[in-house]
């Protein structure tokens, strides 16, 4: 049994110690919003927050995460009101949508550490997140828009 905190809830997980956090979230905890894309930290689809920082959950064995705090897309807000989600809705960012949980989690972590990112800050923080549908220019605009919302105290 490994104890972790997911979206504010303390949870005991009964999984093999080498099970990646991704599959614990998806298969054991019923949180399929976090996606599998590559399994090797190459695509960013599985991005979640670990103690507030963006990490690739496909490459983190659960055994290393005892007592750590995990936030998934399901826990980012209860009602899609996180500024990043609001900006994503305003600009209709997603296409197929499969990469978007990861994109949003990466963007939210970026804005937490850097409330006014430049385009090159966005490049640096977001280049680990592939979007095969090519929504990148709207992702960039939506991050700037979310920064505006945050600046306006929204």
């Amino acid at each position: 049994m490994i104890r972790i905190n997911v979206n504010g809830r303390a949870i005991e997980v009964d999984a093999a110690p080498d099970t990646p956090l991704l599959w614990v979230l998806r298969d054991h905890l019923g949180l399929p919003g976090t996606k599998y894309g590559c399994g090797r930290a190459l695509c960013g689809a599985c991005t979640v927050h670990l103690d507030g920082a963006a990490v690739r959950s496909c490459s983190l064995p659960i055994a290393d995460l005892a007592d750590r705090r995990v936030t998934t897309i399901e826990g980012l807000s209860v009602d899609r009101t996180h500024p990043v989600q609001r900006a994503w809705i305003e600009l209709d960012v997603p296409q197929c949508g499969y990469c978007q949980s990861g994109q949003i989690m990466s963007a939210a972590a970026l804005l937490r550490s850097n409330p006014h990112p430049s385009d090159s800050d966005i490049d640096a923080a977001m280049s680990g997140n592939i979007c095969r549908c090519g929504t990148y220019s709207r992702i960039r605009r939506a991050i700037h828009r979310a920064a505006e919302m945050l600046g306006a105290g929204a």
């Binding site: 998806r26 949180l31 399929p32 996606k35 809705i89 997603p94 949508g97 949003i104």
Partner: peptide, 16 residues
């Protein structure tokens, strides 16, 4: 119409 479900993880793909 599909945007809201695609920003909160609730959109159901086959794998979900």
């Amino acid at each position: 119409t599909d945007t809201p479900a695609k920003v909160d993880g609730s959109a159901e793909f086959g794998i979900d």
